[in-house]
Amino acid sequence: MSESTNPSPPLLRVRNLSTGFETPRGLLWAVDGVSFDLDQGRTMGVVGESGSGKSVLVRTVMNLLAANAVVPDDGEVLFRGRNVRDLDAIEERHFWGTEMAMVFQDPMTSLNPVKRIGRQLTESIRFHLGLDDDAATERALELMNQVGIPEPKKRLRQYPHELSGGMRQRVVIAIALSCSPKLLIADEPTTALDVTVQRQILDLLGRIQRETDMAMILITHDLGVVASYTDEIAVMYGGQIVEHAATSDLFEDLAHPYTEALLASIPRIDLPSHARLQAIGGRPPDMVAPPPGCRFAPRCAYRTDECEAAIPELISVADRMHTCRCIRPLVSHRDVAEAVVAPNRPGSS
């Protein structure tokens, strides 16, 4: 681990990571063989519908799983060259917060309703940085300014219910940033907020990410959200990454039929009102007994019998950085190889 052939190993390297849960019906693979690298200062978006394994993936990366979770040993999460799964309890405690931190989905429930904001904000500062009360409060005020909370002195003495949803999420972000993590994971940070506040929170996360040069993983089910805030995007379906590319490449040359369907299902403001919304037909795969071949095949408009034979490998399309798990990717680059077949429009039996 110490001597590496690569001059600068990525901040986070995930290799063949799987996570299963014991359920009454059998083992459910929520995450199935995921690999990716993330460099310092980069923002990766993870997109997928509910149940596609996004949250479980990042919880596995942070080693924050419930007791009934199963993670096979061949899966690796290397953070700065160190396997996160090998940390002992005390190392882990100092790892969370200072190395990786997380912003949760719903600021209405993530804060303790009976503790003042100040106490909750300084808790981890005092624990990790060992500051005394005055210094911790000083740092808390600084953080609150950084995340754009007006009248920080007054807010310190308030309780969560006295703050709006957007302000609460800013507090949560300040808590996550309090010990300068190298990697910030934001698990649908704006889902519980209304649209105008969503924009402010995403702008804030983007600004802080640039200022501190930390890496960020932004989880969302909204492709529109990630488009302007990420450097690269991983699209997940059925626990697997089905397409992974730089953000601009993904939108220009999307390769996987699922990505296309996901983009088509975003409501468009230029369509006449009451126009029918595009939805992806069928249901997400049953992860206790997933389909034998491509996970998306049963719902795919371009399905052939070949699709159901075996799980497609993640292959490079267009360029080396753009990978896609489909035997007939939709890329427009004709020179990529024989794998690229002109897509049949739906209706071809």
């Binding site: 005390i90 429930t109 309703p113 009976v114 503790k115 981890s124 624990f127």
Partner: peptide, 26 residues
Amino acid sequence: QREFVLSARLLGERNPAIISRELLPN
């Protein structure tokens, strides 16, 4: 199930302390 309990646990609070300081007042 809420995140403030999770975060208290991650900061190394023991179970009796989590029950009395985080859960009891609520």
